[in-house]
Design a protein around this nucleic acid. Structure first.
Length: 196
DNA sequence: AAAAAGATGGCCT
DNA sequence: GGCCATCTTTTTT
């Protein structure tokens, strides 16, 4: 019996079980998780879920060159260019779905983030999907990478996390879905949640 | 071939 | 709150 092989197989199975689920569940559970890219990052405080059969999702209408990563393995990264200017970072969940990272509370690599963002105010480092990607050095080269890649680190929260829920923002379709999740009371959100 | 539409952010009033 | 820089994908002519 090979103990290391068993351990590796278990880790692989857990990874798959976590990511191969509905994006709204994963998006909610990611709040409070620490995420870093090459040691730079912090606590995830805001996410949005985009489902496979969701008119607001890039995957709606099937696989294209841009959204190919969303149809690849769960637990991989989907990076896209927004408005021709910004990069946005997603984690792929069950086939055709993903979670958009919208805001982080900076924790590691302040100098690096400040340099990349051209600002010194930590509140503005990662409060928005484009800002977050820039602060963490995310670009097209990361598209399709597995979250098991050594450049990424994910550390789940160790205590209860108060999560607030609201309608997704910045979209024009399927605005009725309450698929935006945030850390209650966090000053690092990209925008306040509506009452409710 | 051309044009519109974005999962945005920064700076303006 | 409004404007607009900037460009890829998607839709329309």
């Amino acid at each position: 019996m090979d103990i290391k092989a068993d351990h590796d197989a278990d880790a692989e199975a857990r990874f798959r079980l976590f990511w191969d689920r509905a994006p709204d569940r994963v998006a909610a559970e990611l709040i409070g998780t620490e995420f870093c890219v090459d040691g730079v990052g912090g606590i995830i405080v805001e996410t949005e879920a985009y489902a496979a059969d969701d008119p607001a999702s890039h995957s709606f209408g099937g696989e294209t060159r841009r959204n190919a990563a969303m149809f690849g393995p769960p637990g991989h990264v989907y990076v896209y260019r927004s408005y021709g200017l910004h990069w946005c970072l997603n984690f792929v969940c069950q086939r055709g779905s993903a979670v958009l990272l919208r805001a982080l509370e900076p924790l590691h690599g302040f100098d690096r983030m400040s340099e990349r963002r051209g600002l010194t105010e930590p509140r503005l480092f990662c409060s928005g999907p484009g800002r977050l990607a820039l602060a963490l050095g995310i670009d097209a080269s990361h598209n399709g990478l597995s979250l098991q890649d050594p450049r990424f680190t994910l550390v789940p929260p160790v205590a209860y996390v108060p999560v607030i829920v609201g309608a997704r923002i910045g979209i024009s379709k399927a605005t009725d879905k309450a698929w935006r999740f945030g850390l209650a009371g966090s000053p690092y959100l990209s925008k306040r949640f509506e009452q409710g």
